[in-house]
Design a protein around this nucleic acid. Structure first.
Length: 119
DNA sequence: ACAATGACATAAG
DNA sequence: GCTTATGCCATTG
């Protein structure tokens, strides 16, 4: 039985390069609707050497995290731009262009079965 | 067991 | 547009 965090990481790894997903989207897959906050918590807990593409997760408005490094550079924005995801003047991802379509019902069900989640 | 925390979401004013 | 308030849920102290 994978922990909630591990499930989050698993799903985040499914987000294709050049696309982004919202916290709510992830939450809807790994748990019930409403676990969005915990998803954020899970991402916050990601070790830096992890290969999980956490930068492909943004808020429902397309906002990236306010986290910046010592030089004030927004890591997430940088990583996204490297993948060809453009942000508007307000530093938001254009969800209409880059939002991940998510998983098909059948795929979600398969994952849930794999995780032994009872809906 | 309980309260607090969090990189959220949604609805209402 | 904005600011609140409320719901949500796993983890941690």
């Amino acid at each position: 039985m994978l922990s909630f965090f591990e499930r989050v990481y698993h799903v985040v790894c499914l987000i294709p390069r050049g696309q982004v997903a919202t916290y709510g989207q992830i939450a809807a897959i790994v748990s019930h609707r409403g676990a969005a906050r915990t998803v954020g918590w899970a991402l916050h807990a990601i070790p830096e050497d992890s290969e999980t593409p956490w930068h492909r997760v943004v808020s429902a408005q397309g906002n990236v995290t306010p986290f910046v490094d010592e030089r004030g550079v927004n890591i997430q924005q940088l990583l996204l731009e490297e993948e060809g995801v453009d942000l508007n003047s307000q530093g938001q991802v254009e969800l209409t262009k880059h939002q991940w379509e998510g998983l098909a019902r059948t795929e979600i069900d398969a994952l849930r079965r794999q995780w032994q989640l009872m809906p």
